[in-house]
Nucleic acid binder design. Structure first.
Lengths: 133, 133
DNA sequence: GTATTTGCAAACAATTTGCAGATAT
DNA sequence: ATATCTGCAAATTGTTTGCAAATAC
């Protein structure tokens, strides 16, 4: 896998990932791609998403115990996973990040990146839950 | 599933999780339990680990694209996932956490908890990689 | 006594992979 | 021309679940 060729599939997968509103899953991208190119397979979608992420053209957001998301955005941000509906939302942070400086045992490894996953409830689910009571 | 009974399985699963050095996977706990009780099944291990986590007796650490870990530790800390070997290591942070205060759009959801996952290389893998060059 | 829990095997979800044929360069 | 990429289906990994039998209370 040397990732050398610009195939139609790769092009359209990038385009759809960019067009889809917010951190779509591979499945969502797959459906969008198939709307135009019905013979594209899931394997191809995954292969290309990983290639594109490797090239830095998109960002892969790994969500524990849920499908990975692929993000067209470039700026650094984090995510909230709604424990009720499983939805993933952007979490914006103030600049002047002190997370890396707060690590105590930094000699134990080389840190290349990090992501914060918040757990909780999105507005919709929280509201619904309140109504239940 | 009302989680009412203290079964032998539940007891030993908690004990093994506590005894095993550091954030073992369900698989590792399963093996440890089977050493003493060979008929315990994987399903029982998962069910009880989730129950114990629900009761707050252990902590479930969700690792993206890898087996979840179960932690006997109680104090708040984070984790590094080594991108080479897949190992998971504790990351200790200075107290006086400012992560929650740094969230800008906090009105959009209710945040109950969070975890930071660092990506990088552990000492062993980093050293090995250097030798390759 | 009876509701909960177990063991087993089968189901599940997300992702990866082997391979023969197709395609970009 | 040929190495890379695709489509397909099957494999993999981690976890959950349905069900009849076992067990804690």
């Amino acid at each position: 896998m040397k990732n050398k060729r610009e195939t139609i599939q790769k092009t359209i997968i990038l385009e759809k990932t960019r067009r889809l509103a917010n951190h779509p899953t591979a499945e969502e991208i797959y459906r969008a791609v198939r709307a135009d190119f019905p013979r594209v397979s899931m394997g191809t979608v995954y292969r290309n998403l990983n290639r594109l992420a490797g090239e830095g053209k998109i960002k892969k957001i790994e969500i524990p115990n849920a499908a990975d998301r692929f993000d067209h955005q470039t700026h650094f941000h984090h995510h909230l996973k709604c424990e009720e509906c499983g939805g993933v939302y952007d979490v914006e942070m103030k600049t002047g990040d002190s997370v890396l400086e707060s690590v105590i045992n930094r000699d134990d490894f080389v840190i290349k990146s990090y992501q914060i996953i918040f757990y909780g409830a999105c507005q919709k689910c929280h509201k619904k839950h309140k109504e239940d009571i």
